[in-house]
């Protein structure tokens, strides 16, 4: 799809170091990259390359040690925990590998979770929940519990939950990792459909075939970007860098 030149996500020289008493491990090392508004980007790399750390930082799930991060034109590098929660809720839709649905809640209430945190009125929430479940083809299953659905259906519920709040950015962490190939294709179709409606999608995966379905691939190895338009800003990988 066509997208604007405005950056949805801009990271500059981001480093993330995990420290123990004995060692320091660089998960990301001066990583710089940019994702334009409306882009569908796949972030791939081998296990331990720093993909999940990147996703955690991009999703404001974790802080970082150095560098700057702008999300949708706002510097979110140093925000309070409450402010980060609010931005996560309003700007970002998460799709997790293990679906992360709340087993105690039915499908309707699961999709409702982020909307309640936004303190939306009940009628508006209902409208959004029904519309997003309609989009993923599960409008008839609203009163089902997650345990009554297949893996693919559960992931579609998670996608409905991610898009119900109309986020600017979807972050998908190995969304097909727990699904068979048919289900995986359906999920990718849905992500493409959502991207087609203007939402920026960042897909983190180690599956090269899935990554190829994105408009652009960013390859992370040992905590640095290898082949992105912004890779010129990134240093070369170092052997001692590590882990997600």
């Amino acid at each position: 799809m066509t997208h604007s030149e405005a950056a949805m996500l801009r990271m500059q020289n981001i480093s993330k170091i995990y420290r123990t008493e004995l060692i320091e491990t660089y998960a990301l090392r001066e990583l710089s990259l940019e994702v334009k508004e409306g882009e569908f980007v796949a972030v791939s790399g081998p296990s331990g390359s720093g993909k999940t750390t990147f996703l955690n930082i991009a999703g404001l799930l974790e802080t970082f040690d150095t560098g700057t991060y702008e999300l949708d034109g706002r510097d979110v590098s140093r925000l309070s925990d409450d402010a980060r929660s609010r931005i996560r809720n309003e700007k970002i839709g998460f799709i997790f590998q293990s679906f992360n649905l709340i087993p105690d809640l039915d499908i309707f209430d699961n999709v409702d979770v982020p909307l309640r945190y936004r303190r939306m009125k009940a009628a508006e929430r209902r409208k959004r929940i029904e519309s997003s479940l309609e989009l993923v083809g599960l409008a008839a299953r609203m009163k089902h519990l997650p345990s009554q659905l297949s893996g693919g259906q559960q992931q579609r519920v998670a996608i409905a939950r991610a898009i119900a709040g109309d986020p600017a950015l979807i972050l998908a962490d190995e969304p097909t990792g727990n699904l068979d190939s048919l289900m995986a294709r359906q999920i990718m179709d849905l992500l493409e459909k959502i991207n087609g409606m203007g939402t920026t999608v960042v897909l983190v995966t180690h599956d090269a075939e899935l990554a190829r379905r994105a408009e652009r691939n960013i390859h992370i190895v040992d905590g640095v970007v290898l082949d992105s338009p912004s890779q010129a800003h990134s240093p070369q990988p170092r052997a001692e860098s590590a882990a997600d």
Binding site: D82, S85, N89, E90, V113, R118
Partner: peptide, 16 residues
């Protein structure tokens, strides 16, 4: 624990 983390990811503040 996982559920709490998910709620936090979806926008719950600590006080929530």
């Amino acid at each position: 624990t996982r559920q709490i983390g998910t709620h936090r990811a979806l926008g719950a503040r600590r006080r929530d």
